[in-house]
């Protein structure tokens, strides 16, 4: 019971600290922006640990964070191989192929108005469909290896990426296009100097959506059949063995990979679209 009381105390302390930070004079500094969510996260982790121990929750239902950390450090080699199989081989290759193909298709679609009017509604429709459902079919076609995972990822990221890129390429005003015409710019020059740069915010939006989708696709596809490694495989087998520490470790790997790749794309976006209103910040 003392554990639960401590958890409550911890929560009050963490929240009070955050209230002071957020409403205090330093609330707009970079440090406060970073510190507040970190304190919140640490508070939640601490409460999790204390509550699980205090209320005697069995480890097969919810293991405490310390136990997860233990399993994680004890199995880094195994988890690294899962990471390589699922993220680097399955998700990343599919992500690159899918986004690349969608980008090229978007350039093509943008050239021909008829194609755009035909493909865009279809693309919008497909982007809303539960494409994960094709996973069993693709696993049947491409085998249990990483190729089938990459194929699922390609299908999943293609349409969101296509729709966003096409929308981005349309995002120039008639004034800007007229200016290019007065410069006697060729179609290629207009594309390179005006339309691609102004499409970049949309392209990055598509890339960001796709990072999460890629990980989801790669992991779900492994539920339908995989070699004896991979994050999806690890999760489904460890659940069978009620080894929840291992399950959570695999989830931590997936979460880290997801956050890191999202962060990477966001960083790249900041570098390349520094001129856009959403990046300039302001008071």
């Amino acid at each position: 019971m003392t554990h639960a009381a401590f958890a409550l105390l911890l929560w009050i302390a963490g929240w009070a600290l955050n209230v002071r930070l957020a409403n205090g004079p330093a609330s707009n500094t970079q440090a406060a922006r970073l510190a507040v969510p970190l304190i919140f996260g640490a508070t939640v982790l601490g409460m999790w640990e204390l509550l699980v121990r205090g209320l005697g929750v069995p480890a097969v239902i919810l293991p405490p964070p310390s136990q997860i950390a233990e399993t994680f450090t004890a199995n880094t080699a195994l988890l690294w191989r899962d990471f390589v199989q699922t993220i680097l081989k399955g998700a990343l290759s599919g992500y690159l192929i899918g986004c690349g193909a969608a980008f090229l298709t978007a350039l093509l679609v943008d050239r021909y108005d008829y194609l755009r009017r035909g493909l865009l509604p279809l693309g919008n429709f497909m982007a809303a469909l539960p494409i994960v459902g094709t996973a069993p079919i693709l696993v049947m076609w491409f085998g249990f290896g990483w190729q089938s995972k990459a194929a699922v990822v390609v299908l999943m990221v293609f349409f969101p990426m296509l729709v966003n890129t096409v929308a981005g390429l349309q995002d120039t005003s008639s004034m800007q296009r007229d200016l290019m015409r007065t410069y006697a710019a060729s179609t290629g020059q207009t594309l390179m100097k005006l339309r691609l740069p102004s499409a970049l915010p949309f392209v990055f939006n598509g890339l960001k959506i796709s990072t999460t989708l890629a990980l989801i696709g790669a992991i779900v596809a492994e539920f339908f059949g995989s070699p004896t490694l991979g994050l999806g495989f690890r999760i489904s087998t460890s659940i069978g063995q009620l080894d929840l520490g291992m399950v959570w470790s695999a989830i931590v790997v997936a979460a880290l990979a997801g956050t890191a790749s999202y962060g990477l794309v966001a960083l790249l976006e900041k570098r390349l679209t520094f001129w856009h209103a959403s990046q300039r910040g302001g008071p």
Partner: peptide, 15 residues
């Protein structure tokens, strides 16, 4: 949202 939630799906159901 950057966590592939489906990774959690089997565990949520079992738990």
């Amino acid at each position: 949202q950057t966590i592939p939630i489906v990774a959690l799906a089997p565990m949520i159901i079992v738990v």
